[in-house]
């Protein structure tokens, strides 16, 4: 399958922050979630991908082209973007955003925009400055979807939406993905959204890629064992996992251990409580977990 986004060895340096050796792909037909703590480098990665920032190193391909090429405007006809705020000027109305889309995009679908606005409860005459954060994000989404882009790049697009509205948006994204040639790269802190729609999850921390895995490897295969100290000792001495590979996170009631294959672990240690790993559990253990469970 063709990759809609290809990032290799991406580097960008600022005072006090460096993005290093980021590699990421978004194959057609795939939803890739980008997670990580605040300031980890997610938005910088997306901005470089969209040609807003120039990288210091590495290669970036957006729909097969360099996003810094001078004829980038033609390429952007096929990309829909939602940034972390409703970015339309406060003087614009919802209808004005539609008018701008009509001029900017060759494949702008005014009926689709109007339908999405109606579904989201956005009145065409309403000023964007009068929209709440959630309604503003809905307008941004309607704008991003109304030209039938091949790739959607979403930066915290569901932030500020109530749970029902988030589900509505996720349904819309699933519907968008029914055309197999499309893809979504979504950066979010709401990892439960990714559990519902992502195919791959990549995590960036302190400017580095920590993991990039199929969602099923996290949510279906991996697990979190709820251990006591004696359990950890038993696991470490059993040879099931090398002690230096054991990632643990202590809390007042015990210690969580990240288990890459929970089915194999359950067979080996049937007496130890074991849960499926959520993306949040996995990320917390990967970012904050201590390596070498017993030390």
């Amino acid at each position: 399958m063709e990759d809609l986004v290809q990032i290799e060895g991406l580097a960008k340096r600022y005072d006090g922050f460096a993005l290093q050796d980021i590699a990421l792909t978004v194959p057609a037909g795939t939803v890739v979630g980008l997670i990580g703590s605040n300031g980890a480098g997610k938005t910088t990665t997306l901005k470089i991908l969209l040609g807003m920032l120039e990288p210091d190193g590495g290669t970036v391909r957006l729909l097969g082209r360099d996003p810094l090429s001078r004829d980038i405007d033609a390429l952007k006809q096929q990309v829909g973007v939602v940034l972390d705020t409703c970015s339309f000027p406060v003087t614009m109305t919802v209808g004005d955003a539609g008018a701008l889309g009509r001029v900017a995009y060759d494949r702008w679908d005014q009926r689709r925009f109007a339908d999405l606005c109606a579904a989201f409860g956005l009145e065409q005459r309403k000023d964007t400055k009068a929209l709440s954060r959630g309604m503003g994000m809905k307008l941004s989404l309607a704008f991003a979807l109304a030209h039938h882009p091949q790739l959607l790049v979403l930066d915290e697009a569901t932030a500020g939406l109530d749970p029902l509205a988030r589900d509505e948006v996720l349904d819309l994204l699933r519907q968008y993905m029914e055309d197999g040639g499309r893809g979504i790269l979504i950066s979010t802190h709401i990892t439960s959204d990714l559990e519902k729609i992502a195919d791959e999850v990549a995590c960036i921390d302190d400017g580095r890629l920590v993991f990039d895995l199929p969602k099923d490897a996290i949510c279906d295969t991996a697990g979190v064992a709820r251990c006591r100290t004696a359990d950890l000792q038993a696991i470490a001495t059993s040879g099931f996992m090398a002690p230096e590979d054991m990632l643990t996170l202590a809390h007042p009631y015990g210690t969580d251990l990240l288990v890459p294959d929970r089915f194999a672990f359950a067979r080996a240690f049937p007496a130890i409580a074991l849960d499926r790993a959520s993306i949040e559990d996995y990320m917390a253990l990967m970012l904050k977990g201590r390596k070498g469970g017993l030390r």
């Binding site: 969209l50 001078r70 952007k76 970015s87 000027p89």
Partner: peptide, 14 residues
């Protein structure tokens, strides 16, 4: 305001 300048660069405008 509101990151409009950055968002505008995501439209098909070089």
């Amino acid at each position: 305001m509101n990151g409009w300048q950055a968002f505008r660069l995501t439209l098909p405008i070089s």
